[in-house]
Structure formats: C-alpha cells, structure tokens
C-alpha cells in the first residue's frame, strides 16, 4: 500500500529575475517499508521535492504551486502549519546533508534529542533521556549516557550523522527522508552510515526516501530508483531496471559517469557534456535535449510523455516512441572492461 503519494507536484521560487520552476509536475509514490532513491545532479530538484514534502520550503521566495502530497491519505500541502508541525519529526523524520552544521552547537545532544520526544509525545525528561540513550546505542554510539551530556563539537562527522539518524527515528516515523546523508562524509564513514541505514531499515520498518547524486549509494539500499533532471522525473523503475535496462539517455549518462573498479586503467570516465537547463526559462521540449547525443527535432519543441515499460518502469523520452529510431544503451564497453 502506498504510504506517500506525490501527485503532479510543482514548486517554484519567485526571484527578482522571475519564477524559477525548481520542480514541475513530479509524481511518484513510496510504499510502506520501501526504500526509494532519488538521483540526479545538483539543481535537478531532488532536495526541493523532499523539502516540499516536509513543507520546509522557505516562503517567500519559494512556494508549492500545485499538486498533492498525501501521507497515508492526508494531503500535506493543504494542512495548516500547526498540523504540519505534528507531522514533522513524528511521522516524517529527516536527515540532512551536512552533519557538521545540522546540529545546534550550543545545545547538548541530549537536549536536542529529548525535545523531540517531549514535544511530540509529551513524555517526561527522564523517560525521554532513556529513549534517546536506547536510540544512540541502536545507531552504534557507545556510552550513550555520557554522550547525551556532550555538545555536537565533541562528536566527529560520522558520529554526528549517527546522532541525526537516531534523532530522526526517535518517534518511530513512518517515513524517513535522507537528503544526501553521506555526501559530506569521507568514503569509509559513508560506507558505515549506509550500512547502518540498511541495518535500521529492516529493524524499524520505516519507509525511506534517499536522495543522492551517487548511483552506487542507492544501489545498495533502495529497491526503486527515481531519476530526476531539470525539475522533472525522467525515468523511474526498480533498481534492477535502472541498472540493467535504463531507457533514458540521461540515465545512460549517469551510469556511464560512475567510476568502476572493473574498468581498465586506461578507460576514462564519460561526463555528460553541457550543463543543466535554466529553470528560470525552462526549455519548451525535453529538458535534456540540449545535452542529449540522440536528440531529435521533436525533442526541442515538445516535452516527451511517459512511456510505461513495465508495471514499475517508466521513462519520458521521445526515443521510446514507436516511430523513433532504435537507440539502445551500449552500457560500459564490455570488451574494454574485460581487457
């Protein structure tokens, strides 16, 4: 059953230069207990999408223009702010990109954790501290009683992200949103945090939306992947589909630009040439047309509709039109990889 349904979501920022359409017409859902990854390069609207779900878009200048976001049937977009405060932290937990700046430097970890419980569940300080200690242990922080009395600067980056995860899970939220949780961490810590999230996913049975620009990160954790480009979803499907049978040239580009251990030493990473579209004046046709090696005339003038490839897999590309020339993903050159 779908826990979260996002339907035709559009979020814009109104600047002096004009309206920046950061997210336009995004629809997807997240099932109960499911982990979904949203991938795409910087500025493609990943973060704006999840911040819209949390209603954390700074207004002004930002505004959810259109669409519905239903959490277990309730439309969050039209919820009054007071009601929304009861959803944040309680039903949806959120982890942010930079653990170094996401914790308040002048409050103890204990204070920052217990205030969530005291506020949402109205439990006493001691009980809250007990629960906080339990969750710190769960995310692999030893000596939790002593740690709760400490301030963020006494924790390393990886430890702070563990604290953030514990804090987001305190009220057993139905949905956990992780906005690039490993981007600011070094590689070994990244692996630890991902391992922890994988672990917790089974333990606490919460749905997860994981945002990243690193395809490797989603592959290990998510069963479904959403690829965003220029404020739109260009392709989505099961992790299997996206890696084995990608259909959108942008997804191809993303996959080609992932470094591989089994590639030959001489093979170069293939970048996607060009830069993302200007969302202040979004292109009339497909947002990716200007960078697409297979772009056709129609790509510049008309936006492509979604083509359903199977129950879960769909992509928005003119190449999938019956009349389009057959172009397939040649993947990473197998011969080259073997040599």
């Amino acid at each position: 059953m779908a826990l979260l349904e996002v339907e035709n979501l559009s979020t814009s920022f109104y600047t002096y230069a004009g309206e920046v359409q950061s997210v336009s017409g995004v629809s997807f859902h997240v099932d109960e207990g499911e982990a979904v990854g949203i991938v795409g390069e910087s500025g493609c609207g990943k973060s704006v999408t999840v911040q819209s779900i949390m209603r954390l878009i700074p207004n002004p200048p930002g505004k959810i223009k259109n669409g519905q976001i239903r959490l277990a049937g309730r439309d969050l977009v039209r919820l009054p702010e007071k009601e929304m405060q009861k959803i944040r932290g309680k039903e949806i937990g959120m982890i942010f990109q930079d653990p170094m700046t996401s914790l308040n430097p002048v409050l103890t970890i204990g204070r920052q954790m217990t205030e969530v419980l005291q506020h949402h569940e109205g439990i006493g300080k001691n009980e809250a501290l007990g629960r906080a200690a339990k969750y710190l242990t769960m995310v692999g922080i030893s000596n939790p009683e002593r740690r709760l009395k400490q301030y963020p600067h006494e924790f390393s980056g990886g430890m702070r992200q563990r604290v953030m995860i514990a804090m987001a899970l305190l009220c057993n939220p139905k949905l956990l949103i992780a906005d690039e949780p490993t981007t600011a961490l070094d590689v070994t810590i990244q692996a630890q945090i991902l391992e922890l999230m994988k672990d917790l996913k089974d333990k606490v049975n919460t749905s997860i939306i994981l945002i990243t620009h690193d395809l490797g990160v989603v592959a290990g954790l998510c069963s479904r992947i959403i690829v965003m480009y220029g404020g739109k979803i260009v392709e989505m499907g099961s992790t299997q589909d996206i890696f084995k049978d990608p259909r959108h040239p942008y997804t191809w580009g993303l996959l080609k630009s992932v470094p591989r251990l089994d590639a030959s030493k001489r093979s170069k990473l293939v970048p996607i040439v060009g830069s993302p579209p200007d969302l202040l004046n979004p292109p009339k046709g497909c947002g990716f047309a200007a960078r697409c090696p297979h772009a056709m005339k129609i790509c510049e003038t008309q936006p492509p509709a979604y083509t359903d490839l199977n129950e879960k897999h769909r992509a928005a590309c003119w190449l999938l039109h019956p009349d389009a020339p057959k172009v397939t993903f040649n993947g990473i050159d197998e011969k080259e990889a073997r040599s």
Binding site: M54, N104, L107, E115, M164, M167
Partner: peptide, 21 residues
C-alpha cells in the same frame, strides 16, 4: 543556519526555535 532547518524538521513550534535554538 542548517540547525534551524533541523529544528523545523523536528516539528518544533516557532517560539522554541526562536528562543531555544
């Protein structure tokens, strides 16, 4: 600052965010 966004994401009411955080 990011930690104010965190406080908002925790669902804290405005007065706690302003005066405590």
């Amino acid at each position: 600052q990011d930690y104010i966004r965190t406080a908002k994401a925790k669902g804290l009411p405005g007065y706690i965010i302003v005066f405590r955080h």
